[in-house]
């Protein structure tokens, strides 16, 4: 070939500079929030904004303990519970959704029904309308059935909302697999169950990880349904965060930034742990095997 190709994995200076600039633009708000979390109230509101200041951990302390203005006593907030709720609800619901979605996707991919595409399209339509459209009927259903305010209620709802996405994404991974591998396993004496668990699932683990992370991010940040359908005990962090706004002394930006910073950590870790899988998941089928 006449044209010389750059060594794989090495970008030129131009590209490196460009990606650095774009990366900086994306990361700057996050960086600023994290910075604010370490600022005192005065520093946080200073004009012009301060880049250099004496960091403080007070904001993180007040996420979990509140000092009463009148008595001076330290009192635990419920923020620990809300963090637990967020983690518990999001992980369980998305986990369920990926499991159900995977089973459904396998069926749609390997045992197509008459009108298979129609069913898939109907499943997809549930993601087409804005969730707010269905909020009133769902609210009424939850009130009548007693699911409002319970863990089960919000988890079922999040599971249901994640299933269409899971089915579609996981089905595309199954469709990419070579069906002759499954036939070979059958001829070797594997049962249908073993073909699924021993041969199909291991081949799409990266895809499942990607599906899980995408669903998790979506669910983690969900606010509207959490606001209306969780109770005092099942409140999630986004809702709790909103409740710190306002109040008698205005917005405490330092406190808000500290909650946001803590709120970023779990997702950051999951994404970080699964980053290799994620890359393989999102590029699945686009790279020649």
């Amino acid at each position: 070939m006449a044209r010389k190709y750059r060594e794989v994995g090495k970008a030129g200076w131009g590209y490196t500079a460009l990606t650095t600039v774009v990366g900086f633009i994306y990361f700057f708000p996050v960086f600023w929030i994290i910075l604010t979390a370490f600022k005192t109230r005065t520093d946080a509101l200073a004009v012009p904004p301060k880049l250099f200041f004496t960091p403080t951990l007070d904001n993180f302390y007040s996420v979990f303990f509140r000092t009463s203005i009148t008595t001076g006593n330290s009192q635990a907030t419920d923020m620990g519970l809300y963090f637990f709720n967020s983690i518990f609800i999001a992980f369980t619901a998305v986990g369920f959704a990926v499991i159900v979605g995977t089973l459904a996707a396998y069926a749609f991919s390997r045992y197509p029904l008459r009108g298979n595409d129609t069913y898939l399209f109907i499943i997809l339509t549930t993601r087409m309308m804005p969730p707010i459209v269905v909020i009133i009927p769902i609210f009424l259903m939850f009130r009548i059935s007693g699911l409002a305010g319970s863990y089960w209620g919000i988890m079922l709802l999040y599971t249901a909302f994640n299933i269409p996405f899971s089915v579609w994404l996981v089905k595309s991974f199954f469709d990419e697999l070579n069906p002759e591998i499954e036939d070979a396993a059958r001829m070797d004496g594997s049962t249908e169950r073993r073909v699924f668990f021993g041969f199909c699932i291991p081949q799409i683990l990266a895809g499942l990880a990607a599906t899980f992370v995408f669903g998790l991010i979506l669910t983690w940040n969900e606010f509207l349904f959490a606001l209306l359908l969780t109770g005092v005990d099942t409140r999630t962090v986004p809702v709790a965060m909103a409740r710190t706004l306002g109040g008698e002394v205005g917005v405490d930006y330092g406190l808000l930034a500290a909650i946001v910073t803590l709120f970023l950590i779990p997702i950051f870790f999951v994404t970080f742990l699964l980053q290799n899988q994620l890359l393989r998941g999102v590029t699945f089928g686009t790279v020649k095997k």
Binding site: D183, F199, Q203
Partner: peptide
Amino acid sequence: VQGRGMSMIFQTFALYP
């Protein structure tokens, strides 16, 4: 399929990746 006493070599080889 299982237990027919046959085996097959596929065009794509179909090795378990």
